[in-house]
Design a protein around this nucleic acid. Structure first.
Lengths: 227, 227
DNA sequence: CACAATATTTAGGCTTATCAAAAATTATTT
DNA sequence: AAATAATTTTTGATAAGCCTAAATATTGTG
């Protein structure tokens, strides 16, 4: 039988931590109650309740009306969940042939499985990959999350620049399916032909073959390195 | 985001169904409240509450004070969970090199992951094995659970008979570790030298090498075929 | 058959996670 | 600086699962 230790978190608590982490990433930004509520599609009142609880468990620094920050413990816990999520996503794509747009919801469940040994063994089985299928770095066992420093957001690129796609920072199936359709994947090369000053959309060439216009919303989600 | 459909079961409901299934297996025996309570280490009053709920969800036939039986729907649901449990156990042993005594608790968590496609893909990835690491049959996608008809319980064997082990019907780590220690695993050959009438213990030879006495409690957990 | 033992259910409460509505605090605007 | 808007918290309720103690039903025994 499974024994629950004192500092074990419920599935809900884990999801709150994960949300706070992603809203505060990468600069440990202070996060507000409404923001969390929106992100979890939950009532702000529920968030306040949970924040009190997480504060007593020393997972967050919390001052009424002022917002929250993760403590070291809370952040470690959140990163551990992110690690599990990304390792499972890699497994699903690499071993079970899922496409990158299918894995998020399943990994969302698998990330809560509690067995450090399982994750160690699984990660070894996968050959210790550094990135998940969307190009996001997989934190190491010590909770260190290393981003590629040369990564640039497509949004901030200029006319005539060329980047090789390294990361998509959105798990939504619709976006990922659209990108697949227009032949954008990790490793694709995007060359910027024109930037529209009014709506920040970009006319680009994908892999030297496809001529297309990307909206600002989409360029914000794509990262790459100059090439 | 994950959408909860009307007939979706909670983790707790799934565990009740699984328990009722295993207590009623293989002859659809009627199961009592206390029995379920003991099995789940829960108060009988809690069981009554849950039985009412499962009755309303048409998962069980339930008459007050008389005990319960799974309906077709309930049984299908239970078998699906068993299927997932056994497939995950196989994965853990075959791909991640866990030993047969380590997998139960992890599979207990993994069995609740909700993604039929995941299970289909995983089962294919494993090469569609017919049995789990303890020799239990893996139900097929249609919910058909086929036991090996030649299987005999070691308990009911007689002096001088010899069986090849095909199944252990207990997930407890301590039992499985003990069996490993005395070199009993799937495929081991057990020859019965003597049966003690008083306590039903057996003196046996394992794999033609090890001479040992097995208690009745243990012989009840071991199944095999004559050889 | 009646009485005791056992099994099951009911009643009343607790905790976790949620919500809506009202109150309090902080931020923004005139 | 006062009024208004936005955000956050408090208050009071609800549902799921669980508990203990008390009541009721069933089963077993003399």
């Amino acid at each position: 039988m499974y024994i629950k230790s004192i500092d074990m978190l419920s599935l809900t608590e884990e999801n709150y931590l994960k949300t706070i982490f992603s809203l505060s990433y990468p600069n440990d930004t202070v996060v507000g109650t409404n923001e969390i509520a929106k992100s979890l599609t939950v009532n702000p009142a529920s968030v306040t309740d949970m924040l009190k609880k997480l504060y007593h468990k020393e997972m967050i620094d919390y001052i009424k009306y002022q917002g929250v920050k993760l403590t070291k413990i809370g952040k470690d816990k959140a990163i551990d969940i992110v690690r599990k999520h990304r390792i499972w996503e890699y497994f699903l794509v690499d071993k079970l042939n899922f496409s990158w747009d299918e894995v998020h919801d399943i990994a969302e469940q698998l990330e809560h499985i509690d067995s450090p040994l399982l994750i160690t063994r699984l990660y070894d089985f996968l050959g210790n990959p550094p990135f998940d299928p969307h190009g996001e770095p997989i934190p190491n066992e010590a909770g260190v999350l290393t981003e590629i420093s040369e990564n640039i957001n497509l949004e901030s690129c200029l006319k005539q620049q060329k980047i090789k796609v390294t990361k998509i920072i959105d798990d939504s199936a619709t976006l990922l399916q659209y990108l697949t359709k227009i032949h954008i994947g990790l490793g694709s090369v995007i060359e910027i032909l024109e930037v529209n000053d009014y709506d920040k959309s970009m006319e680009v060439i994908i892999n030297n073959e496809k001529n297309i216009i990307l909206s600002w919303e989409i360029t914000k989600k794509i990262y790459g390195i100059y090439c």
